[in-house]
Design a protein around this nucleic acid. Structure first.
Lengths: 261, 261
DNA sequence: GTATGTGAAATGTTTCACAGCC
DNA sequence: GGCTGTGAAACATTTCACATAC
């Protein structure tokens, strides 16, 4: 990455990491990307009331193999019990702590078109430690309207509000043409983490961390694999039609991931 | 990240690749993910009328370093001219061909909520070799309505239409609860490439390629890096405020990517 | 007995640095 | 002289396989 995630992934992390308690191994980027996936799988287990889980079954639920999962978790410390497995609640808490999800971060969302509204309405947003501090748009028709209990502000107020609300993370959901400008203003106002949905490569100073979600790129990657498949699959194709469906969490279905990469 | 991923990235590609002309090196997943980025950068150059570009400037526009770009392009063959650079139109065409964007692929979009509508309206969709063949939803209030010149069909017709239209790629934009079911039906109908926006890990047979776009995961990865930064940055913070903005395409700004991965 | 945690090997990716060509 | 193309080195990630602990 996505690979994808993704993806081959983030950048701009300080080389030395002095963490709360003592000298720990640095956590690989690839592992960080998967921790988020494990978190989701663990939340599912909590709801079903399962208290303990083996690396084997958690890995299956997350779509990775168990050796990778164990290696990933080993970077957080030793929170499993040999011969038994992992305590779901404890592991969940450790991952949350590692990802910094306990102190909650103010998020600004710029652009409330269809995409922006989809993002604002995203359930996992509020529940998973992020709270939307402000919504912005440039369109006078939208500014002033109410969305999810927040008034949409004019983008001219961006710097002012970002500073006042101490926004840590900004999500850019504006058209391509406006994205770099919005980005510049965010950076100038002190934002150092940006999630970009606009189809442009943003130029930022080295201390700013940008992650990009790019529909066209994802489609093109699928297209690449698809074209390689279709050449060879011309005949095999028929065999896979009307095959029995798969049950979620069943066995070792190999599923690809975005990740960041 | 990438991935990001990239997204650390896709899966399910056949080991041996017998391509149109002779034995070529297999293309790394990480490279495929970036080809899509180069494609965008090249499109930008075409519009400004630039006919030739060096690896150095194309790399800057794409947010990678030039050695990586040259290595990536070398997997496609030798389409550059030493001492000169790459012909923009030729390179663009070669990348398009490699990604399989010349034969155009039918895409089905399942779920036309805010996200689905944002995706349907996405400009790069129509223009970049993908055409939406069908829209589906389960909500009777939406079924039958018109969107981008297409009638929204009831999801019950999914198998039938997917087969009739020879849909190659499906985009899942339904709520989490419905995603696995939709996925099963797509697979049964013969779809082997899926882009999933629902926040669940889909279980699929090994021959099906799933890429996932996960807002919560992206946010959490940013959160991780942000929390590492904020500990150390408490004082440095002030220095970066009100810094001069950056110009797009300027120099070597290191930008992260999702990817593919 | 069972399942974690982890060195070591294998594999994949990025960067270096320079030969080769225009 | 300038810029591509690419082996070889450096680095990162995944997988293996087993010692270790319950």
């Amino acid at each position: 990455m996505t690979a994808q995630d993704d993806q081959l992934d983030a950048v701009g992390v300080n080389a030395d990491q002095r963490s709360a308690a003592g000298a720990e191994r640095p956590i690989p980027d690839a592992t960080v990307a998967r921790l988020a996936v494990y978190l989701r799988a663990l939340s599912g287990l909590v709801e079903t009331g399962i208290a303990t889980v083996s690396s084997e079954s958690l890995a299956a639920a997350a779509g990775v193999n168990s050796a990778k999962l164990r290696k990933d978790l080993s970077y957080l410390g030793s929170y499993g019990v040999r011969g038994v497995g992992y305590d779901v609640a404890l592991l969940l808490e450790q991952i949350r702590a590692t990802l910094g999800l306990n102190e909650d971060r103010a998020v600004a969302l710029i652009g409330v078109g269809h995409l922006g509204q989809a993002l604002a309405g995203y359930a996992g947003f509020a529940t998973r430690g992020f709270q939307i501090a402000a919504l912005f748009d440039a369109d006078p028709a939208v500014v002033g309207s109410q969305l999810r209990g927040l008034r949409v502000l004019h983008v001219d107020l961006l710097e002012q509000v970002v500073r006042a609300e101490r926004v840590a993370i900004a999500v850019i959901a504006v058209p391509a043409a406006g994205a770099q400008d919005v980005c510049n203003r965010l950076v100038a106002a002190g934002v150092t983490s940006i999630l970009n949905f606009a189809p442009v490569v943003l130029a930022v100073p080295a201390h700013v961390d940008v992650r990009k979600v790019d529909l066209a790129a994802e489609m093109q990657i699928l297209s690449f694999h698809d074209s390689r498949k279709s050449a060879r699959a011309e005949d095999a194709q028929a065999r896979f039609s009307d095959e029995q469906p798969f049950r979620p969490g069943s066995g070792d279905a190999s599923v690809s991931m975005a990740a960041a990469k």
